[in-house]
Simulated assay, not measured.
Amino acid sequence: MKKILLLIAVVLGATTINAQEMYGEATYMSKVKMDNSWMEGDREMTPERRKRIEENMKKMTEKTYVLKFNRTESTYKEEVALEAPGQGRGWGGMMGTMMAGEKYKNINEGMYTEQRDMMGKTFLIQDSLPQLEWKITGESRKIGNYTAMKATATMPSGEFDWTNFRRRRGGNAEEEAAQKKKDSIAQATGDLTEMFEKPDEIVVTAWFTPEIPVQHGPDIYGGLPGLILEVNAGNTTLLCSQITINPEEREEIKPAKKGDVVTQEEYDATLKQKMEEMRQRWSGGRGRGRGR
């Protein structure tokens, strides 16, 4: 461990002057390992429908993001393709709302700002950056042209972090049969709490390079002595595919200004309320359809 810390200190010391004016852009690819077991054994689901569902889930989870950073600030946002007319509505649109958003981070202030749209209304979430207790393991490997070091931490699983949801399972055949009945009811009513559960905490593994001496990383992650090139958090992987340091053309790094200012807790409470309203409307529509 002493050798690892010495290496970090040497690299940081050699590049401190250059870091004063550093500007960089890093592209990340996301991938989520989804639990699709809830579709197994559903006799009413055709192979074509299952394929459509899996393709839509893949589109929602395999995305490209760009991190733009200087020494103390960064912005992180998705490269969004234009949607066809009619897309982005209903539950799919709500799930997109839960994932999307332009995030600005200021390390010196320990704060982040994230702009999100929810059903036609724009919010500006402003809150403190999460403080992860990273443990540098001493392992290293090459990622592209950079030497990366491994660090791990644990963090709470967010209330709306649906990527880590997993299907509830029975301990034996009888309990599993009972769970499948609950699954059917959950799909009919739109109340998925009886169908899925989530862990209280997730393990985060990050690979960072002290060769780029900034404390930034994708999404909410950062605070290590080097740019984070890869993150494995629960079922989600974020992998850096391209890095450009000090290009001639640079974008100003600044937070979004438009939207109603709320804390993360306030935004989550509003989102939860909107989701419940949508579930009740959807469930009521299904109920009327069954009654005809």
Rank of each mutant, 00 (worst) to 15 (best):
K258H: 09
G287D: 09
K103N: 07
K33G: 00
P247K: 03
L132W: 00
D200Q: 13
M98Y: 04
Q280I: 10
G101Q: 03
T122M: 14
I143A: 08
P210L: 13
N145F: 07
R50F: 04
I136T: 00
S128C: 13
K105F: 00
W134I: 04
R89W: 09
A151V: 06
E44Q: 04
H216P: 03
K181E: 10
R116K: 06
Q131S: 14
R169D: 10
N106A: 11
E277G: 13
E252K: 13
D117N: 11
A9D: 08
E55R: 07
N56R: 15
T236E: 05
G234P: 02
Y221M: 01
Q187R: 15
G86M: 13
E265K: 07
V80Y: 03
A173T: 11
L229M: 09
Y28P: 02
G92K: 15
E277N: 14
E174S: 05
G158D: 04
K121A: 15
S184E: 02
E175T: 02
M119E: 15
D161P: 01
T97I: 12
P213C: 07
T236C: 00
E139L: 12
E62L: 09
Q87P: 03
I17C: 13
E194A: 14
A269V: 13
E194L: 12
D260E: 15
T75K: 05
D191P: 13
E109S: 12
T113R: 04
L224T: 01
I202V: 09
M98Q: 04
E73R: 04
Q242D: 15
T236W: 08
L5A: 14
T237W: 08
R281T: 13
E102W: 12
G96V: 02
A151I: 03
R141S: 09
G171L: 10
G120Y: 08
R290K: 15
Q273D: 15
E176S: 09
P130A: 13
E176M: 06
T122G: 11
E78A: 08
N18W: 00
K33M: 13
M155N: 03
E174C: 02
K254N: 01
T205R: 06
I212M: 06
E48I: 05
I243Y: 01
L5P: 09
L124S: 11
A151R: 05
L239Q: 00
L82Q: 11
K3T: 10
F69T: 01
G120C: 06
C240W: 00
P199A: 07
E102V: 11
Y76Q: 00
K2C: 11
C240R: 00
A26V: 02
M22Q: 07
Q264F: 02
V261D: 12
G289I: 15
K63C: 10
G138V: 05
R279H: 09
G284W: 08
I202N: 01
K198C: 01
D117A: 10
I136M: 07
M119V: 14
I143N: 06
T189Y: 14
F123Q: 00
M39I: 14
Q131R: 11
Q187E: 13
A233P: 02
P218H: 01
K274S: 08
P225A: 03
A26M: 01
I253Y: 07
H216W: 01
E159Y: 01
D161S: 05
M45C: 04
L224W: 04
G13Y: 02
P210V: 12
Q215E: 08
E276N: 11
K135R: 02
V10C: 12
M60F: 12
R116I: 03
M278T: 00
I253T: 02
Y65H: 04
L271Y: 07
E276F: 07
